[in-house]
Design a protein around this nucleic acid. Structure first.
Lengths: 245, 245
DNA sequence: TGTACATCAGTGAACGCGCGTTCACTGATGTAC
DNA sequence: TGTACATCAGTGAACGCGCGTTCACTGATGTAC
């Protein structure tokens, strides 16, 4: 019974850990990151404020857990939308990633702000956030790789990158393979540097636009936001030379 | 002596107001927006904490003042860099705006985060922030207008915007004229909708990239950041059909 | 199966701290005649 | 020019609040023989 009983304790523990995070997430969505208070969370759970310390060594650790969950949330949303598309519908997969990221952000604005907004002052992101943070970029890279290995990227007149930038792109190809988890690592070797930069640009544009929308900068500027993001997806796809874009 | 004496009081008042804002700005750059405390500010100025209320009705009002100053800071930086270029050096002006926004952001990271990062929870931006917030976008629009009225935008194969998006762009043309201050309002009538959308895209890409850099998302991804932003400027310029891009 | 012991979750009081804002006040500076 | 009054900046004590974290503790759950 050794393993079972230990398993029970662990299961209860996991459940409460999840409950704490759930309440924390709800508070986050009401008061934002700076207003997240362990006392308020425990109050709502009906436990002593000191009890959290059995689950998270500090408020920062709780924040880290929320950050990782948030990255995994967007990642998950994007992955499931993308994987619902036919593999050869490259533009469809591309659009699916753009749309699902925006959709997730609209549903979880404070979680989005937690990971893509201003860094929380005094908080230093630990290493463990790196891998989950890369999910969305990997999905975009995956589409481009599939095109490169399949029909091929249609040649497009790009702006030549500087030598330093080209080196960044090459380094990215090798680095990505290391960070990759659960078989996510795409066959990066098939990407030429200009395409890697194109993926970075698309990734930047996607989150730039979603951030601008969420943070209020499109207020009275862009109202047809769905259309706007779709167009941005198409523009970046065309810049990269995806077929059909 | 009526006007003079009132003038003296006003001048002293203005000076202290500025001093408070300066200290607040310094605290902002050390502790971030959530850590900005009126008590700490007055402590440093050697005055009673209640004294601030003679200058700002509330902490939020002080924050608003800092926000407006920050928008004017980037705007000023961009304007002076841009106006140092020859009027017909369109690409140069375009690059100057991109580079100077990034330069200002690197010099004032917390002020940047204040205006382009996550909205401060519970804080609602008053109307007075709208005009200063538009400065940079107006500068970009100005370059495009000058090209449109001069050599003309080189036709480029763009992605057609949806009808709704086209309407946004048209509305923007009329709205911008209203918001415009100190003769900034460019001759917007000369812009066709697709060009307006292109300006919005460039504006989005610029701040998207600067935010990603400042907020740490380019960490171990893009290291040649100056080159990267330059290239982004060139790509957006080419998409718009600026000559020489 | 029963007993002695170890592990662990959760408590509640306390520490030490800082915050934004109000309010009745003092004293200096400006105004009007 | 001199005097009575009004305006205003700045004070300091107080209100009422919430926070993260520590620590010695109780009691239940699991473990080993």
């Amino acid at each position: 019974m050794v393993s079972t009983s230990r398993g029970i304790r662990q299961r209860v523990r996991d459940e409460l850990t999840k409950e704490i995070k759930d309440v924390a997430r709800r508070h986050l969505s009401e008061f934002g990151a700076p207003g997240l208070s362990v006392r308020a969370i425990t109050r709502e759970l009906g436990m002593a404020s000191s009890a959290v310390y059995r689950y998270f060594p500090s408020r920062d650790a709780l924040l880290t857990a929320l950050i990782i969950d948030a990255y995994e949330g967007v990642g998950q949303a994007a992955r499931s939308a993308e994987s619902a598309c036919a593999r050869t519908d490259y533009l469809g997969r591309w659009l699916a990633v753009f749309r699902s990221v925006r959709g997730w952000a609209l549903e979880h604005p404070h979680e989005y702000a937690l990971i893509y907004g201003s860094p929380v002052p005094g908080y230093v992101a630990p290493q463990d956030t790196a891998a989950p943070a890369a999910h969305v970029a990997f999905l975009l890279a995956g589409v481009v790789i599939d095109v490169a290995m399949g029909p091929g990227l249609e040649p497009h007149v790009g702006v030549e990158p500087s030598e330093a930038l080209r080196l960044d792109a090459l380094k990215q190809v090798t680095d990505m393979a290391e960070v990759a988890v659960d078989g996510t690592a795409p066959a990066l070797a098939h990407l030429d540097p200009v395409a890697v930069i194109g993926v970075i640009d698309a990734w930047t544009a996607l989150f730039g636009a979603v951030s601008f929308e969420l943070f209020g900068h499109y207020h009275r500027v862009v109202e047809a936001r769905e259309d706007h993001l779709d167009r941005l997806a198409r523009v970046t796809a065309r810049d990269l030379g995806l077929p059909g874009a």
